[in-house]
C-alpha cells in the first residue's frame, strides 16, 4: 500500500507540467551537448569508415538513412505509449508529448524516404518502387501528416486528445508491418542486417559509425522533443489565460464581474 502511494505521488509529480518544465529545463543543455558531441564523433567516424567493396562511397548514405528510419519508427512508438497515457491514465503530459512528437517524426520519416531514394537511384537504378517496405514507410509519413491535420482541425487541445490517441494506436499496427515487411514479402529493399536474432551482418568498420549516428539521432530526437513539449505547454498556458481573460470580461459585462473578474484583480 505504502509503495503504491509513494509511486503514485512520484508519478503525479512528474505529470505536473510545471515540474516537467523545471526538470526538462535542467536536462536540456546536457541533452543538447550530448547530441552535438555524438553527432560530431558519428560524422567523423562515418567519413573515416572505408568504402563498401560493392557500393563504394554511397554506403555513407546508410549512416543517415538507417538512423532516420529507426527514429521514424521509434517516434511513432513513443507516441503510441503517450496515446495509452492519454486514454488509460489521463496523464496530463501524455497528449502534449504525443502532439509535439508529430513534426519531429514526420521530419525523420521524410528524411528516411528522401535519403533512401537518393541511395536507391545509384544502387538499384530507380528512385522509387512500390514494394512493401517503401510503401509502408510512406504510409507512416501520411499517418504523421494526418495526425498533424487532426490536431490543427480542433482549436481545443483537450477535445483533440482522445481521437488523436485512438488514431495513433490504430496506426501503430503499421510499425511491425514496416519492420517485418522485408521478411514477409519479396521486396527490393534488403532484409534487416543489424537488428537480427543471429547478430549484425555488417562489418564492424561500418557498424560502429552507424551505431554512433543512431545514438546521436536518438539524442537529437529527445532534445527536439523536450523543446517542443515545453513550447506546447506554454502554448496551452497562453490559450487558457486568454480564455480566462475573455471569460472575466464576458462575466463583467453580463453579471457585474461575479464570475471571476473581481477575484483575479
Amino acid at each position: 500500500m505504502t509503495d503504491t502511494t509513494v509511486s503514485q505521488g512520484w508519478f503525479t509529480g512528474l505529470a505536473n507540467p510545471t515540474r516537467f518544465l523545471a526538470l526538462s529545463g535542467k536536462l536540456l543543455p546536457w541533452l543538447a551537448a550530448a547530441s552535438a558531441i555524438t553527432l560530431v564523433v558519428g560524422l567523423y567516424m562515418s567519413f573515416a569508415a572505408p568504402e563498401d567493396y560493392q557500393q563504394g562511397i554511397t554506403v555513407r548514405i546508410m549512416f543517415i538513412h538507417v538512423p532516420a528510419a529507426w527514429l521514424a519508427m521509434m517516434c511513432y512508438s513513443v507516441m503510441a505509449v503517450a496515446a495509452l497515457g492519454t486514454l488509460v491514465w489521463r496523464h496530463p503530459l501524455a497528449d502534449v508529448a504525443a502532439k509535439s512528437a508529430l513534426p519531429i517524426g514526420a521530419a525523420f520519416t521524410f528524411l528516411s524516404l528522401l535519403t533512401g531514394s537518393l541511395w536507391g537511384r545509384p544502387m538499384w537504378g530507380t528512385w522509387w518502387v512500390w514494394d512493401a517496405r517503401l510503401t509502408s514507410v510512406f504510409v507512416l509519413f501520411l499517418m504523421y501528416l494526418g495526425l498533424m491535420a487532426l490536431h490543427k482541425a480542433m482549436d481545443d487541445p483537450a477535445r483533440a486528445a482522445r481521437p488523436a490517441a485512438v488514431l495513433t494506436l490504430v496506426g501503430f499496427i503499421n510499425i511491425p508491418i514496416i519492420k517485418f515487411s522485408v521478411d514477409w514479402w519479396n521486396t527490393l529493399h534488403q532484409p534487416a542486417s543489424v537488428m537480427r536474432l543471429d547478430g549484425p551482418t555488417i562489418h564492424p568498420t561500418l557498424l560502429y559509425p552507424l551505431l554512433v549516428m543512431a545514438i546521436s539521432f536518438t539524442l537529437i530526437f529527445f532534445t527536439l522533443h523536450f523543446m517542443a513539449m515545453r513550447n506546447e505547454i506554454l502554448r496551452r498556458r497562453v490559450q487558457a489565460m486568454r480564455r480566462q481573460a475573455a471569460q472575466s470580461i464576458g462575466g463583467g459585462a453580463i453579471g457585474g464581474g461575479a464570475i471571476g473578474g473581481g477575484e483575479t484583480r
Binding site: T58, I64, P103, A107, L111, T115, L118, P122, M227, N231
Partner: peptide
C-alpha cells in the same frame, strides 16, 4: 550524377531538415 553527388545531397538535405526543425522549435518557444 556522380556517386559523390548522391552522398552530398543526402547529407545536405538531412542537415537542412534538422536545422530547420531546430530553428522552427526555437522560434516557436
Amino acid at each position: 550524377m556522380s556517386h559523390e553527388a548522391f552522398v552530398f545531397i543526402s547529407y545536405a538535405a538531412t542537415a537542412a531538415v534538422l536545422l530547420g526543425l531546430l530553428a522552427f522549435t526555437l522560434a516557436d518557444g
